[in-house]
Simulated assay, not measured.
Amino acid sequence: MANLLVRNVDEALVQRLRERAAAHGRSAEAAHREILAKALWKPQRKTFAEVLMGMPNVGRGADFARVDDDEAARVFG
């Protein structure tokens, strides 16, 4: 494991880190590692096809039928 030294950090920010760590029952160093990991280890983006395949099957085709302009005007007008 590598070490990371961060200099010139605003004291108010350090205090907030300490408070956040204490609220979660861990050290400021552990909280710092968690914040860095969440910020930098972002999940891979899904492809458009994966997003579409992940959508639940809800309703029938008729439920999503296009409405004519007159009906849309009554609903949204």
Rank of each mutant, 00 (worst) to 15 (best):
I35S: 06
A21R: 08
E19W: 05
M55R: 07
D69S: 13
P43N: 00
E71S: 06
E19D: 15
L13T: 06
T47E: 03
V9D: 03
Q44P: 01
P43F: 06
G77T: 04
A31C: 05
Q44H: 03
R45H: 03
F64D: 04
E29K: 10
R33G: 03
R7L: 06
A72Q: 08
V14L: 14
K38I: 10
D10M: 00
A2Q: 11
A65W: 08
Q15C: 01
L5F: 11
R16W: 02
L4E: 05
L40P: 00
T47R: 07
G61C: 07
A73R: 14
A22C: 08
A30K: 09
R33K: 14
G25Y: 04
R20F: 06
R33Q: 13
A73N: 06
R26Q: 13
G77N: 04
R45P: 00
K42V: 12
R45Y: 00
A23C: 07
R16T: 15
M1E: 15
R20C: 02
L36H: 04
L40V: 13
E50Q: 15
I35C: 06
E29F: 09
R16Q: 15
A12H: 10
E50H: 03
E34I: 01
N3H: 12
V51S: 01
Q15S: 09
R66E: 11
A23N: 07
V51G: 01
E29D: 10
L5P: 01
L17H: 02
E19M: 08
A23V: 08
F48H: 11
A62S: 14
V58S: 06
A37Y: 13
V58Q: 12
M1P: 09
K46D: 05
G61T: 11
K42D: 05
E11H: 04
G59H: 09
V9C: 08
D70C: 05
I35M: 13
R7D: 03
R26W: 01
D63V: 04
A73V: 06
G77V: 05
A65C: 07
A72T: 07
R26D: 00
L5A: 10
